[in-house]
């Protein structure tokens, strides 16, 4: 069954037609071309498809596109502005928070949600916030450092 839905994606209002069974991940990637949102497991275990849905981190593979109607969604594509990279993107670049990069968008989204809640998170809080984002390269230490540096830069 087809549904007409609207949502705000990275600051822009969009209307689109989706099928009942389509996941938000599928719609973001295949229909809207937002390929920073990665397919990793389809079962909500890896966090590669993390997006912010009304400010909360969700695994977009576990959300039906119809459920996202009338929400505000942020993906990694929406982090940078005309003024340049988001402080998180900058610090991840400068502090080796990226290796293969497949988990990077999801990491940024979880980090963004954390910094929205807590402006100066402790290492322990960062570890907790990232527990649903797997990084097979094991870059966690530098990811955590990148988030700490970004949180200081924001002040």
């Amino acid at each position: 069954m087809k549904h007409e839905i609207q949502f705000i994606i990275n600051g822009h209002a969009r209307s689109l037609t989706v099928e009942s069974q389509q996941t938000l991940l599928e719609v973001l990637r295949e229909d809207l071309g937002l390929t920073s949102v990665k397919h990793g497991c389809s079962t909500g275990e890896c966090g590669a498809c993390s997006v912010l849905l009304d400010g909360e981190v969700v695994n977009s593979c576990m959300v039906l596109a119809v459920e996202a109607a009338n929400t505000e969604i942020l993906t990694a594509e929406g982090l940078a502005t005309d003024e340049g990279l988001h402080p998180l993107q900058k610090s991840f670049t400068d502090h080796h928070g990226v290796q293969c990069g497949y988990c990077a968008s999801g990491m940024l989204i979880s980090a963004k949600a954390l910094l929205n809640r807590t402006s100066r998170p402790h290492e322990e809080e960062i570890r907790e916030a990232l527990v649903g984002n797997l990084c097979r390269c094991g870059a966690y230490a530098d990811i955590i450092k990148s988030i700490q540096v970004a949180s200081r830069a924001r002040r």
């Binding site: 920073s36 990279l85 991840f92 670049t93 990226v98 990069g101 968008s105």
Partner: peptide, 14 residues
């Protein structure tokens, strides 16, 4: 890294 962090990098699935 910058391309990977802005979603510009193309992986196999993209």
């Amino acid at each position: 890294a910058q391309k990977k962090l802005t979603g510009v990098t193309c992986y196999a699935g993209d």
